[in-house]
Design a protein around this nucleic acid. Sequence first.
DNA 1: TATGAAAGACATCATGT
DNA 2: ACATGATGTCTTTCATA
Lengths: 160, 160
Amino acid sequence: MVQLDDLDRAILRILKEDARLTISEIAERLNRPESTIHFRIKKLQERNIIDKYTIIIGKELQPKSLAIVYIQAETPIIEDFLERYINYIMKTLSMLPNVLAVSRSGKDGVIALVGEESHEKLNRFVDETIRVLPTLKRVEVFTLDEFSKGEGLVGFLVGV
Amino acid sequence: MVQLDDLDRAILRILKEDARLTISEIAERLNRPESTIHFRIKKLQERNIIDKYTIIIGKELQPKSLAIVYIQAETPIIEDFLERYINYIMKTLSMLPNVLAVSRSGKDGVIALVGEESHEKLNRFVDETIRVLPTLKRVEVFTLDEFSKGEGLVGFLVGV
DNA sequence: TATGAAAGACATCATGT
DNA sequence: ACATGATGTCTTTCATA
């Protein structure tokens, strides 16, 4: 089981905001000795509660136009074909740099997060790369126009 | 404009994998002097290409069941009401800890990424918190069952 | 598990090629 | 862009409670 006390949570929240703060700065903010903060962070890493440290890429390198695309395959007679076809779609989309995330959705669906420089390019990508896939039952596009929570995810996902 | 050379990109890719590597370790991997790496990283930060440093929370603290939920409001006669209603929905959802991301989608829609401990809890959340909202035209739920790209986004978004 | 102190490693900066 | 060295800060370890 995962057991976190208030100090652990406080440290995690601070590191989430700025993972480059020094242990002494964190110690000062939380009114604890450095050795304690160091010990806690070490434990959080060992317990894999802190999975990794990473950077968020700034706006300039991020795609301006985003959309969630739902792709549903035509349900075929042969089950095994559907399985392999979904896997093929997922693998293909995953390789594209402007496809930021791909997940299976149910037995016959795929959800992708797509980013492009402009609304036009995004529509063209959907038309020319996704809608052309054979034996699709449904393709649905939901543009992401303005985040009120979780906006940072673009800078986290975008490649360099 | 954003100008990145191969060295910048190599550094960014390394930091994306592990933002806690020391400058000397990065310098060694890339066969460059430490002073150069230090200088480049400093510039990348100043140029805001590195926007921030953060931590990814491990699996144990992540929701097991995820879904993208699309919420479309009934288009009313009065435009201004739609605007305020969408804002209200977004603000309300943003406050919930199990709603990891919220974005407006078009004039009359909202897209939310929802996480819960189980498939059942997730369905209950959608039924009891989202479908009960008045004057909705459509609520669509797409479960996220298995990522092939961008899986880390959950550990990035989840709160502590 | 928490803490204080000490030792070593590191980032940072200045200077010069 | 790269090299070197000086400086102060930070991490890490360990002994102790």
